[in-house]
Design a protein around this nucleic acid. Structure first.
Lengths: 347, 347
DNA sequence: GTTAGCACTCAATATAATAGAGTGCTAACA
DNA sequence: TGTTAGCACTCTATTATATTGAGTGCTAAC
């Protein structure tokens, strides 16, 4: 599709623009990238590349800038895949070693790591709660009339909630209910708990009438967990270091997007089914307010099933090779950490 | 200290500047605020006020702008206290009614409310975990070799953590340990748990040797909770709507502060002991990067004891009267919500 | 003590001039 | 036929220069 020299010119333009954020002229390319031809020749090639839609000109007397399509071609065909430095890998491993207490903490830490290493804004997403499967429930008696429900899903999400209980119900009753629920709910999809189980619970607990009502209430209200995903952000203000965001209006539209977690999770969920790292460039993100941005994303998970995703958000001019390497390295480690966390060291 | 007319002039300057963000000239005051005197007279008063340090001039041919000291005088002596509109109060109450499941959720919601109503950036802080007192612990058996520790403090914070346990320990053993710990730790300060209890636990469980080691490990590692406060932010990007932040450099220093949770919590913790709403203006915040900002803060709590604080961050030119009213209204409601949440409806 | 009047200051805006980077095209060259 | 030197042209960015206008401080009169 593109002959070797055109590829080289495009590569030079993309690399130079990523590095300098200045439109790239023919002379610069000839000087810096030694393609063995004169600026005039390069100008001809550039005219062709522009006609094909890979680069564009901000105005007549400026150099060329890659278009979304140009970046896409770069990512798909020209980009050299990088690796992290030893130091960076060590940083990641150490962070994970010291934070393996709690899923939320691990994800927050992941967001910070991502942004710290890359200087881009990081987005970390946990999967929709309702998609998980039931793992364990425990109702803990905390005092007269008060109890706490703790619900754990196989994706590692833990929900807790304080509820009121009739004074007549003691710790043993709560244990009974817990046991029955655990038995009945094993492996069920959390989203469907309410629908499927009312009858069964009824039969099981019919003999202990005073406990029954409580259990029913619990299923109706207590398990009505918030089903939203959770989004962790890291390095929000990193984006301000990019020259394309020296204008406050742009920053505003971007930040207001970052506050709408719904939008973000839609974008990232779109790549859950993809293998490995996915890059969405500019308009490919299909969102007006970040049409000048790109996102490098991947999902993490257990046993090959995704339970969440991470993404790096930067200008379309971002360093894709580096972002790609970082996202790749971190997702695979994150998946390991999650498995260890949810299954215990032995397994 | 200031005669009535000077007060009126100062009030006019502060109000006008808060409303317009433009330096206020003598003519504007005479026209808009009908003090019954001519611009020339006002100029004389302004010269006095400037000499006293209440106002300053950005440059010779500009109007006057309140100084930190001017705002301070305004807040202490001139400000009229406002109330929220019915609609706003309703909004707050409704939000709280629908979110009373979980402390974290309530605080996140509070951050959003604050920023939504005021258009300033909201900071919501929970108290230092170690300062709370032990309320309940439960070790839940989740499968062979795996258990979850749930720790609740009287300030409502809940910590959960998955731990490995020896395969030889079954659910009943975990119950035993839970029971002993609950008994021994009742009401103790969480920070001191480790120091005070090792001996006692030892005596209590000496007979059940196989459980003892596990309990010891738990005390040593499992209860070593993260002691940091938690900070919830709302409406970070609201600050961008203020004309004083049209310059990206300022935004950057501010946002980088907002990412340092430590700094923020120090500021807010400083007002935990104060009754009611506290206002810190500009340099009073003692932090270089927000010397052009002010914060309106208050603590919320139970039984008069603070368990956290909230704050509104805006430019020194912020609308103190309104921020004051909002912070006041929301802290008192938040305190109620927290009490209800942690004690159950009846009490 | 108050006020009108006026010269003065200084940022902000508008206007013009200049420099410089980069292009596209043409014509000559290998 | 592909490559290249040369050159006129375009357009932004920068700098220099006027112009405007809000607002002041001071003085002198009321």
């Amino acid at each position: 599709m593109l002959d070797a020299r055109k590829k080289n010119v495009l590569l030079a333009i993309v690399q130079d623009y990523i590095a300098t954020a200045e439109p790239v002229g023919s002379r610069t390319i000839a000087r810096k990238y030694k393609l063995g031809v004169s600026p005039a020749t390069i100008r001809n090639e550039m005219a062709d590349l522009e006609e094909m839609g890979f680069i564009e000109q901000p105005h007549t007397s400026a150099g060329r800038v890659p278009s979304d399509r140009g970046y896409r071609y770069y990512v798909d065909h020209l980009m050299k895949h990088e690796e992290l430095t030893m130091d960076e890998e060590k940083l990641v491993l150490n962070s994970y070693l010291s934070k393996v207490q709690d899923v939320g903490e691990v994800l927050r830490c992941t967001g910070n790591l991502l942004s710290q290493i890359t200087n881009y804004t990081a987005v970390v997403l946990t999967t929709h709660y309702g998609k998980g499967r039931f793992k364990h429930i425990q109702i803990i008696h905390m005092g007269p009339g008060q109890a706490m429900v703790v619900l754990v899903s196989d994706s590692g999400a833990v929900q807790h909630r304080i509820i009121d209980v009739p004074d007549s119900i003691g710790p043993e009753d709560l244990d009974t209910i817990s046991r029955v629920l655990n038995h009945k709910l094993q492996g069920k999809s959390i989203k469907n708990i309410r629908l499927t189980l009312i009858k069964e619970i009824y039969l099981e607990l019919a003999r202990q009438k005073h406990v029954l009502n409580m259990a029913m209430d619990l299923i109706r209200d207590g398990l009505d967990v918030k089903t939203g995903e959770k989004v962790y952000l890291g390095g929000i203000f990193n984006i301000l270091n990019q020259p394309e965001f020296h204008n406050v209006e742009k920053v505003k539209t971007l930040l207001s997007l970052l506050e709408q977690e719904k939008e973000l999770s839609n974008i990232i969920e779109g790549v859950f089914d993809a293998r490995g790292v996915t890059v969405r460039i500019g308009e490919e993100l299909e969102n007006e307010s970040i049409k000048d941005c790109s996102m490098v994303m991947a999902s993490y998970g257990m046993d090959g099933k995704p339970v969440g995703g991470i993404g790096l958000l930067g200008p379309t001019r971002m360093d894709y090779a580096r972002a790609y390497a970082v996202v790749d390295y971190i997702t695979s480690n994150l998946s390991l950490v999650m498995e260890r966390l949810l299954r215990g060291r032995g397994k």
